[in-house]
Amino acid sequence: MMRRILSNPAAATGALLCLLVLLAALFAPWLAPHDPIDQSIVDRLSPPSGSYLLGADAYGRDVLSRILYGARISLIVAVSSTAAAVVVGGAIGAVSGYIGGRLDLLVMQAMDVLLALPSLILGLVVVALLGPDIGNLVFAIALTAVAPFARIARAPVLSLKQRAFVEAGRALGFSHVRILLVHVLPNILDEVLVMATLWMAAAVRTEAALSFIGLGVRPPTPSWGGMMREGFDNILDAPWLSLFPGLAILLLVLGLNLLGDGLRDATDPRLAVQ
């Protein structure tokens, strides 16, 4: 599996980009040349140079250091919101599909209602109601992804529960919980994993968008969307303030998308070597 991903150049690039961001986030305190919050007014708006590789912002803070620390916010929000959505949405979809009947109809219609709301608007409402902090941000983004994951988990469960090995499990007297956990879930994991990677990219974008309009993490904590917003005030004098965090978002989203596509190809049974 790992080899199949790495043998695909696009997927390998994606994995590399994601790894880069992950390392940046993990080792930010050691990699960052400056403290991301320390202000140095004399250096305000200084262009990229030897001491400020990517320049300094309107408060004289080092952009590179802020981007490195900002990776933490992006990854934490993306990973935890997607994980929450996978667990909650996946459980709803899998159980609903397995039980079927009227309950399934009802649950899926509720999910459709959730799906009909644009994710940015939904996130906006939730954060506006609950207040901008990282927990609420994760909750808001997870909420927008629950319905898609319910759908993604349900579809393969519908076909799996018709398969003879599930019926065999019932004939052998296995409990429904056992059949669902041991025989159904492992068989939908691939599909869910692929979608989770792709959804993480969406979560990064949503987080950036919410931070951009001021509903993200509170300043002065650095986040990429927030940095772009702050840089906007001086976009004509110091375009690097918005450009570099924008590039960081681009690279992470691109990396996750490439990785997700590569995973999908690697797990496609039609391409699998027997």
Partner: peptide, 30 residues
């Protein structure tokens, strides 16, 4: 336990993610 079933499609009747040994041991442990 006393009445069991054999299925038509041998390709769909085994869980592709479980080894043969685990598939056969599972009913015994359950």
């Amino acid at each position: 336990r006393r009445m069991q079933m054999v299925f038509q499609d041998p390709y769909a009747s085994l869980n592709p993610r479980r080894s043969i040994g685990r598939t056969l041991a599972e009913p015994l442990t359950v």
